[in-house]
Computed example of a mutant assay.
Amino acid sequence: MILHITDRQQWEQAKEKGIYRCESLGTEGFIHCSTPEQLTAVANSFFRGQQGLVLLCIEVDRLQAELRYDPVENQLFPHLYGPLNLDAVIQVLDFTPDAMGFHLPPELQ
């Protein structure tokens, strides 16, 4: 399983359209994802203070677009090189920080 952080509004729009795309797909050519082990650091680096986020839990075996693990700062991060087909999303979790920041949701521990 890989994870993707997005805002609830983008996710709701994706459900209406039947496919998920985000800005980075157009600007960088891929959708940024994380492993569960990488999630907290990514969230606290790039989403600090943001509200209204959801966490998409993605089943890798269901992906239609190409998934690559690209090196970034001495780690391999999962990047999806195409739109995300909605049937690959197996769970959507509210992703709200507390006073200390973001944490891995209990459902994923």
Results as ranks from 00 to 15, higher is better:
93 L>D: 02
47 F>D: 06
31 I>G: 01
69 Y>P: 04
62 R>T: 12
5 I>C: 00
48 R>N: 15
11 W>E: 03
69 Y>H: 07
89 V>A: 02
28 E>K: 15
57 C>H: 05
10 Q>I: 05
81 Y>V: 01
71 P>Y: 01
80 L>A: 12
40 T>D: 09
44 N>E: 09
83 P>F: 15
19 I>C: 00
51 Q>H: 14
42 V>Q: 03
82 G>I: 09
32 H>E: 10
59 E>R: 10
43 A>D: 10
103 H>A: 15
63 L>A: 02
84 L>P: 05
55 L>Y: 05
74 N>L: 12
85 N>I: 10
19 I>E: 00
35 T>D: 06
85 N>L: 02
58 I>Y: 04
67 L>Y: 13
18 G>I: 08
95 F>E: 05
66 E>H: 12
26 G>V: 04
50 Q>T: 11
1 M>K: 04
7 D>T: 04
19 I>V: 01
22 C>W: 11
59 E>Y: 09
62 R>D: 05
64 Q>H: 15
91 Q>F: 12
105 P>K: 02
23 E>M: 14
29 G>K: 07
73 E>V: 13
36 P>K: 01
50 Q>R: 14
96 T>G: 10
1 M>Y: 03
16 E>H: 06
91 Q>C: 10
25 L>Q: 00
29 G>F: 08
81 Y>L: 04
56 L>T: 14
20 Y>Q: 06
40 T>N: 06
75 Q>A: 12
80 L>Q: 00
51 Q>M: 14
99 A>L: 10
85 N>A: 05
98 D>Q: 06
75 Q>N: 11
84 L>H: 05
109 Q>T: 11
91 Q>W: 12
44 N>R: 14
54 V>F: 15
72 V>K: 11
